Computed example of a mutant assay.
Amino acid sequence: MTLVGLEELRAAQQRIAGVAVRTPLLPCPWAADGERRLWLKPESLQPTGAFKIRGAYNRLAALTAEERARGVVAQSSGNHAQAVAYAAGLLGIKAVIVMPDTSPAVKVENTRGFGAEVVLVPPHERDTLPAELVEKHGYVWVPPYDDRHIIAGQGTVGLEIAEDAPDELDTVLVPVSGGGLISGTAAALKLACPGVRIVGVEPELAADAQASLRAGEHLAWPVADTYRTVADGLRTPSVGKLPFRHLQAYVDDIVTVTEDEIRDTVALLARRGRLVAEPSGAVAPAAWFHRASEVGGRVAAAVVSGGNLDPALLSELLAR
């Protein structure tokens, strides 16, 4: 099981050009603290509101004509769902998306709006039903993270950071769920920008990746535990097998943030950064603001991975 290389990352960058937005690296003078400085990578500006379009389009665009004709199935709490639906629409491919019935309504509605068929199931069935649909209908499964094309597509985030970062950048903060984003981003940065530290960030209530990395073995948390966090995009009970290999090779550490820290950062990014970030998208900057001693570094870039936030929740958090 070889790691994703620079050639695959560059190929993905070319494949998604013109579909995924090349998001800017934004300086945040309002977030400076002494010599510490922060930059934000707002993947919330993507056409589907999150970074997932990068991997989804890279995966679907690489399908053969025969595979496209069969249609695709994917499972997701929302952002991968929207990305697969959007990419499938652009490429004329039938898409069926299995989503937990706890998914935010805005993500379900958007997925349907992009033309996909949505199947809502209890959370514990999200990862098992796709295999049944593949067997029954012959669909091609598009996994959310445990796939080379997905990892390479998400890794274009890292290529862009490497191209745009100031010379003094020493740390990059990336949220962790199934591991596709941090795997690709870490690979890109370690191969293109050696010396930069990669720090993953998880909610304390869904810290399976931190536990796995520190134990040196692949661990899983019960679904009932990970679904406690407000960061619905980070509730995956374990990182994928291929992503875990990338974590071991390229990620320097994983830190966790509390639910209050996540909520506070959503509000802070809206008020001071003028950015709408969903809780999952706020965890990386939350580590910068609340876990400075654990994160370390002087100049950091934090990936704001998505902005598909229920308006009612945003209103609640801004009123805190």
Score class of each variant (00 low, 15 high):
128 T>L: 10
231 A>K: 08
46 Q>K: 00
241 K>R: 12
203 P>I: 13
286 A>D: 11
165 A>L: 11
8 E>S: 04
45 L>V: 05
264 D>M: 09
256 T>R: 08
244 F>Y: 15
201 V>N: 07
256 T>C: 14
241 K>H: 14
229 T>G: 01
55 G>S: 00
260 D>H: 07
212 S>K: 05
120 L>N: 09
141 W>M: 09
53 I>W: 07
19 V>S: 04
181 L>R: 06
256 T>G: 09
134 V>M: 06
115 G>S: 06
158 G>H: 02
173 L>A: 10
196 V>S: 07
201 V>M: 10
148 R>K: 13
310 D>H: 01
221 W>M: 14
6 L>W: 02
56 A>M: 05
288 W>C: 06
15 R>L: 14
155 G>K: 06
143 P>L: 02
241 K>C: 06
80 H>N: 08
145 Y>H: 11
115 G>K: 05
216 G>L: 08
200 G>A: 12
45 L>D: 03
244 F>K: 06
83 A>R: 04
157 V>I: 12
65 A>Y: 00
39 W>P: 00
299 V>E: 04
61 A>T: 02
11 A>N: 01
239 V>K: 08
95 A>L: 07
80 H>E: 08
284 A>L: 12
318 L>E: 00
176 V>W: 11
99 M>S: 09
274 R>K: 15
91 L>E: 02
